[in-house]
Structure formats: C-alpha cells, structure tokens
Write a protein that binds this DNA or RNA. Structure first.
Lengths: 136, 136
DNA sequence: CTCCCTGCAAACTATTTGCACCGTC
DNA sequence: GACGGTGCAAATAGTTTGCAGGGAG
C-alpha cells in the first residue's frame, strides 16, 4: 500500500501513514469521521480536509473502495478495494463482505438479457444481523 | 397514486398533480432537477423546495423509489416503487430495470451464509449499453 | 373558515478549495 | 532547496427549513 503511494509519485508523510494504517487494519468499513477520530490522537492538528484529500488519492490509486450510502454516510474499505457485495445491518450498522457464488451467474444473466457490457457493480443488501435478532 | 395521497390525508394541489404526472409517465428515472424542469412550464413559480417536499411525501407513502448515487445524483422511480435491480449505462446514463431470475437465489444464499434476515436491497450494475457500444 | 401547502430566502451539512507555512525527498 | 502536503478558514453544492401568504377542503 505504501509502495503504491511511492510508485504514484506521492510523498510518504506521517499523516498519510496514519490514515493508511487505519484503513488497512480496521476490520470494519470506516467513515471519514471515524478515520479522523482514530488519527487525531496521534496527530492532534490533523484536519478533516487532509483525510478527504488523502482518501481521494487512495481511491484514485485503487487502494480503497468508496461506499457512498443514500443517507449521506460514506464508508471506505481498505481490505478489499474492488467491487464486492455488502450486507448491512440496519440496526447496528455493521457491514459484512459475504462470498456469493450466485453473483457470477447473475452478472452473466444480466449481460445476456440486456446486451450490456457490465464493467462494475454495486450490491448492497440490508437486513438484521444474527446478533441484533437475538437482542430482540 | 392520487388515491394514495387522498388516503394519506394529503391535499391534492395542482403542483402535486404535475409532479405525480412526471413520475408516473416518464419512462426513465427522473432526477429532482429533471422533474423541476418538466413542471416549470406549467407552473413557472414552482420552486425546487416544493419538488423536494413532495417527493419526500411520495417516498413516505411508498409511491416512488429513491435512487441515490455516489456521484451525488438522485433519481426517482415512479413506475416500480419497490426494490429491484438497475443497470446503468456509464456513457449515456440510461437506466434499465431488468428481470433477473438469479436474484432470488442470491438473496437466499446470502441469508444462509450470513444468518441475516434480509429486508431490503440495492443492486446496481454499471456498464455500456448496446447503443453506446455500437457508436464506438 | 381552517389549515396545509407553496414559494422565497436563509440555514444546513458534508465536502472541496485557496493559500501560507512546513517537511519530505 | 524545491515542491508537494498540511492545516486552517472560507467557499461550494445539494438539500432542508422557517415563515408569511394563498388555496384546497
């Protein structure tokens, strides 16, 4: 990930490393705000603008995947920066990355039915996770 | 659709009728701006705020489906106001509503693998439509 | 006649930009 | 030492809200 930056002619600054670290290590799908919160302890002067700028750079390099939701929230995925389905718990906001065999079938069926050449996709399923179902 | 408004204790104003008409008749998936443009000729004093307010009402009543995209654009669907997949042409911005048999399989596979109770989904595929492929 | 609705403008929020200083290379 | 990056504050864009007057019921 650091190599990707170097090869892109970008400088390695401490702030950048800190942002990378959050994206690479967090199990979940952090928001800009949440990255900000995690970087601030180490670099108290860091501003939100810096997070935005660097996330944009990483997005450009294909190192993170941006997930914009209709409620205005933006989440980022530094673990699997390519198109993949998401399952979102509408109660606790947890996001899972399931492996779905039927996806390939579906894409091919789509191409056949519509005549489109499919290049990207964005699949989100919403529901209630096992944990939240039990808490009822 | 008008009945839905009436039963929801909402008043039938000319502006509302005009907005309904655009949503019900347009083949595509109009944006707020595009609804605005189509309503303006009949009601030149109409403001964007009115469109937003009424679209929100219709969304609440389940009469339209809101499609927010990550590029900030919002489109609305008054023809099929329920969850269904979309195929978006990245060249001409056309949106299709394909019928996909594999969707049901996929949802069941998801529920089985993750333990989630799936309640809603949002599936968008991006690619190039036949028309735009030929224009190359 | 009562309210809800409209339309204007102002408020809001998330993101982006301009610019002076700083630190990497 | 040059120049890209940072951090602050101000600008921006899309959407929402407050309020006064108007029209539906």
């Amino acid at each position: 990930m650091v190599d990707a930056l170097r090869q892109g002619q970008y400088r390695i600054t401490p702030q950048r490393l800190a942002i990378l670290k959050v994206l690479a290590e967090s199990k979940g799908h952090p928001s800009v705000e949440s990255i900000f919160e995690q970087v601030k302890p180490n670099f108290p002067t860091t501003s939100l603008a810096t997070i935005y700028k660097n996330v944009a750079v990483l997005k450009e390099l294909g190192q993170v995947l941006e997930l914009g939701f209709s409620d205005g929230s933006n989440r980022y995925d530094g673990k699997k920066p390519w198109d993949h389905p998401h399952v979102v718990c509408t109660v606790c906001k947890k996001i899972l990355d399931p492996d779905i065999a039927a996806l390939e079938d579906m894409t091919q069926e789509l191409a056949r039915v519509t005549g489109f050449t499919i290049t990207r996709h964005r699949l989100d399923f919403f529901g209630i996770c096992p944990d939240c179902q039990n808490k009822k």
